[in-house]
Design a protein around this nucleic acid. Structure first.
Lengths: 138, 138
DNA sequence: CTGAATCCGGTGCGATACTG
DNA sequence: CAGTATCGCACCGGATTCAG
């Protein structure tokens, strides 16, 4: 399979595989944060990423490390200190992530609006159906 | 909140919200497919996207339609025909998605390799621990 | 401070069958 | 062809506790 072959139904398996990791929202967050700030400690990340639990942050970081996207450096001090940063591979991912990030920021409100309109129409249809049923019952 | 403020810990809520939709791997797949092929029918999408179940494709398409990213056109024929395509908003998303797609294709093997190395090292450490325990037991 | 381990409720998602 | 409905379970993810 050519590396540049992204035409047609392309490398679905590759996409699936990669998206299972980087499509996860915490992973995107972590890469985004590390990309902006360079090097961060565990609790710095936890404070920055709103709503992430300790467990999820740990798991996310492990998986990113396993995939070669994040460096994990342990300093044998007391109290312990662990610093995370992007690997070279991770840095290349930061470009696409950043694009996605910016798109989200720009189009967030548009999506909210679309949802509102869609839901309103759905409700209108539902109400109409209810009326039909009431009519059929006489 | 400024729409262009993506600095620091930025719009986490917006990111969470948007990523819950477009960070989903099936959504990425669908947008990617529709972006490349323009207009597709339900079963065309299903055939192209490897591994997606009927249920998931339906839900994904509904959500994308609700978020204003995908058009859904029903032709009152028999047998029924439903065609999906990207909205203008959806087309703007295709850029970032495409970047992610290309990155996946380029770096898929690197990730696989990283995993292999990581797992090998993990196994080595686990084996070492086992030996230590056996030694401690005398 | 940085984790690992355990418990456990909610639900995402696949499989299957049915409808228009 | 293009869905909807239902069931069942695996797994995600939060809360809590313990460890180095």
């Amino acid at each position: 399979m050519s590396l540049t072959d992204t035409s047609q139904h392309a490398n679905c398996s590759a996409m699936s595989d990669v998206l299972n990791r980087i499509g996860d929202k915490w992973s995107v967050m972590v890469v985004g944060m590390l990309g902006r700030n360079g090097t961060l400690r565990f609790n710095e990340l936890k404070r920055m990423i709103n709503g992430v639990s300790q467990r999820m942050l740990t798991l996310t970081l492990r998986n990113l490390e396993r995939d070669g996207l994040v460096n994990r450096v342990i300093y044998p001090e007391v109290p312990p200190r662990v610093e995370y940063s992007l690997t070279e591979l991770g840095k290349t991912l930061q470009q696409p992530i950043s694009a996605l990030w910016d798109w989200s920021a720009e189009n967030h409100t548009a999506i909210i609006d679309a949802r509102t309109i869609y839901d309103a129409r759905e409700n209108a249809i539902a109400a109409q159906e209810t009326r039909k049923i009431a009519y059929a019952r006489g």
